[in-house]
C-alpha cells in the first residue's frame, strides 16, 4: 500500500510547493485553537457557574465580564491586548500568547452564557431531590446538576469551538504564523493564489469537521452517562439533525 504524506514536498506541482508550509501553519492553528479552547472552556465553566450564584455581587461580576467580551469583536480585543495594553502596562505579550488570551477571553464569554443557560435549564425538581437526599452543595452540583447540564451544553459548545477555530485565522493579523498567515506568505511569494486559498478553505473545513466528530462522540458519551443516550452505535456515522444549527 502506498501512503501519501499530505505535507510532503514531493507532491506534484503547486501542492508540493505549498503543502509543507501550510502544514506548519496548520500546527500553529491547532495550537492556538487548543490553547484558546482550554482557556475558553475553563472560563466558561467558572464564569457560567458564577452567573448562577446566589450572591448578587458574584452574578454582577460574571455579567460584566460576559457583556464586555461579547460587546466587542475578537479582532478589536486582539489588537488591544497586543498593541494597546503594552503602552498602559509596559508588558509586551508574545504574539501566540496574546492570540490565545484574546480567543479564550472572547469565546469564554460566549461559553459562560451557554453554561449558565444549561445549568438553569436543569429542572428545579432535580435540585430539590438532591437537597432532600442531603447532598452537599458541591455534591449537588458535581453529581446531579452538572452531568445533566453537560449534555445540553455540548451542541452549542461545538458551534463555539468551530467559531474559535475560525477566529484563529485572525491571529495572522498580529503575525502569528498560522494557516492564514502561511497562505498569504505563499501568495506573496508567487504561488498560485487560487490553489493556496482553496487549500486553506479545505483545511479549515476539515479541522472544523474534526471538532464536530469529536463533540458528537462527547455528546453521546455524556448522554449515556445520565441514562438519556441512544444505545451504543457508531456515532460518527449518523448526522444529528441539530448539528450546525446557528449558535
Amino acid at each position: 500500500m502506498v501512503t501519501v504524506n499530505p505535507c510532503s514536498a514531493e507532491l506534484p506541482g503547486t501542492l508540493g510547493e505549498t503543502m509543507p508550509f501550510l502544514c506548519e501553519g496548520a500546527v500553529v492553528t491547532l495550537q492556538s485553537a487548543a490553547g484558546g479552547s482550554v482557556l475558553a472552556l475553563v472560563l466558561a465553566l467558572v464564569v457560567g457557574l458564577t452567573a448562577t450564584s446566589r450572591f448578587r455581587g458574584a452574578r454582577a461580576v460574571a455579567r460584566v465580564y460576559m457583556e464586555f467580551f461579547r460587546g466587542t469583536s475578537v479582532l478589536v480585543q486582539l489588537f488591544w491586548l497586543f498593541y494597546a495594553m503594552p503602552i498602559l502596562t509596559g508588558f509586551q505579550l508574545d504574539t501566540l500568547f496574546a492570540g490565545i488570551l484574546a480567543l479564550g477571553l472572547n469565546l469564554g464569554a460566549y461559553g459562560s452564557e451557554v453554561v449558565r443557560g444549561a445549568v438553569q435549564a436543569v429542572p428545579a425538581g432535580q435540585r430539590e431531590a438532591a437537597i432532600a437526599l442531603n447532598l452537599s452543595p458541591y455534591q449537588r452540583m458535581r453529581r446531579v446538576i452538572l452531568p445533566q447540564a453537560f449534555v445540553e451544553m455540548v451542541p452549542p459548545m461545538n458551534n463555539l469551538l468551530i467559531e474559535l477555530l475560525k477566529s484563529t485565522s485572525l491571529l495572522s493579523v498580529i503575525t502569528v504564523t498560522d494557516l492564514a498567515y502561511q497562505g498569504r506568505l505563499l501568495v506573496n511569494s508567487g504561488s498560485d493564489q487560487l490553489v493556496v486559498f482553496a487549500l486553506l478553505l479545505v483545511i479549515y473545513f476539515l479541522l472544523s469537521y474534526l471538532i464536530t466528530l469529536l463533540m458528537r462522540y462527547v455528546e453521546g458519551r455524556a448522554a449515556r452517562l445520565v441514562g438519556r443516550g441512544k444505545p451504543r452505535r457508531t456515532p460518527w456515522r449518523r448526522r444529528s439533525a441539530t448539528a450546525g444549527a446557528g449558535r
Partner: peptide, 22 residues
C-alpha cells in the same frame, strides 16, 4: 452552506478580494 459556515470569514474575504479580480 455548511462549507461556508465552517471556514473563516477572513479567508473568504481573501478569496473575494485577491482571487476574484483574476
Amino acid at each position: 452552506a455548511e462549507f461556508i459556515r465552517s471556514t473563516p470569514l477572513l479567508v473568504q474575504l481573501f478569496v473575494l478580494y485577491y482571487v476574484m479580480p483574476d
